[in-house]
């Protein structure tokens, strides 16, 4: 590591791009609400509301101010932890989302922790045995799973394990008010398996592709010809080559999960932000929709940033020669 500064510069540049993208994303999310037909205050209060109440809410929401002023105060609120006011619950959005973010995060973390080692191991297994029946069976299964929308996998799992075939797991989440979802671990099983089955095929394919590329490469051949045991060849020479791309795929799958939880939470009535988003869209509770889409987009951008940084750090060409790539 002779020249750290070009590397740091590259990462800082990538960071700056992410910040800019987030800023434009926030503009887009805010701009979308300007397309709302009619008067938002009236939409929130309903047709029976008196003109005085509409006027009061208009002032409270600042709807009489110009759009750019509202954008700035919304953005300022977001940055200081004030996500707005939910028309449906008549309370602050942060209150609505507090526990739900933790519940969704739990789902994400559990899925990542379970699916990553399984997928890496299966992908490596397929790569080492490429061309055999194991390999083609694994790629056939991944092909089928990768094709299925998440709710299809979820419904099939429910039919299999909760209703028609076996009745061993709960098909919906039952959370009493104030009781955290993890109080009943068995109701986390099906949502987590559904998400894991959606994510695993991609990681298997990527691991298999990059690892078999490495196993066919000249430097691995060289190590073999020097008489190293196959195990050492695999672990010391081939595997390190795949860390960058695979880290990227894992990060991207995490980012993907942020969107995938929406459908899965709805299916299992899991009390996370995904279900809150669906409810808010159905009720056209715009400030909640804004807050949740912004949270998901921010997570998405951050994880993609992490993926790119991992890619930069793992690529010896960039690490040693500094900023040559791109």
């Amino acid at each position: 590591m002779t020249s750290t500064s070009p590397l740091t510069r590259l990462i800082l540049k990538r960071l700056l791009v992410s910040v800019l993208v987030l800023l434009v994303v926030s503009l887009l999310i805010f701009g979308a609400t300007l397309l709302l037909p009619g008067d938002p205050a009236r939409a929130i209060l309903g047709q029976q509301a008196t003109p005085e109440r509409v006027a009061a809410l208009t002032e409270q929401l600042g709807l009489d101010r110009p759009a750019w002023e509202r954008y700035l105060s919304w953005l300022g609120g977001v940055l200081t932890g004030d996500l707005g006011f939910s028309a449906a619950t008549q309370g602050p959005v942060t209150e609505l989302l507090g526990g739900r973010i933790a519940a969704s995060a739990l789902l994400l973390v559990l899925t990542a922790v379970i699916s990553t080692p399984v997928a890496l191991a299966l992908g490596a297994w397929a790569a080492v045995r490429r061309g055999t029946r194991t390999d083609s069976a694994l790629s056939g299964i991944s092909l089928v799973l990768a094709a299925l929308p998440e709710f299809v996998i979820g419904v099939l799992l429910v039919v299999l394990f909760a209703t028609s075939v076996f009745q061993i797991l709960p098909s919906v989440t039952i959370a009493r008010p104030g009781e955290p979802v993890w109080a009943r671990p068995d109701q986390l099983v099906l949502p987590v398996i559904t998400l894991a089955l959606v994510v695993i095929p991609y990681v298997i394919r990527m691991t298999r592709a990059t690892l078999s590329e490495a196993l066919d490469a000249g430097f691995v051949e060289m190590a073999r010809l020097k008489g190293m045991p196959e195990r050492t060849v695999l672990l010391r020479h081939a595997v390190p080559h795949t860390i960058g791309p695979v880290a990227q795929v894992i990060a991207m799958q995490l980012a993907w999960l942020a969107g995938g939880v929406v459908v899965v939470e709805f299916l299992f009535r899991y009390p996370g932000i995904g279900q809150a988003l669906i409810d808010a869209v159905a009720n056209r509770d715009v400030q909640v929709v804004q807050a949740i889409t912004l949270i998901i987009a921010a997570f998405y951008v951050l994880v993609n940033l992490a993926a790119d940084v991992a890619g930069i750090l793992a690529d010896p060409r960039i690490r040693t020669s500094g900023g040559v790539a791109q």
Binding site: V25, A258, G259, V262, I278, I296, A297, N304
Partner: peptide, 9 residues
């Protein structure tokens, strides 16, 4: 920067 489904929502 958005999951496709979230943008649709």
């Amino acid at each position: 920067s958005f999951p496709q489904l979230v943008l649709a929502l």
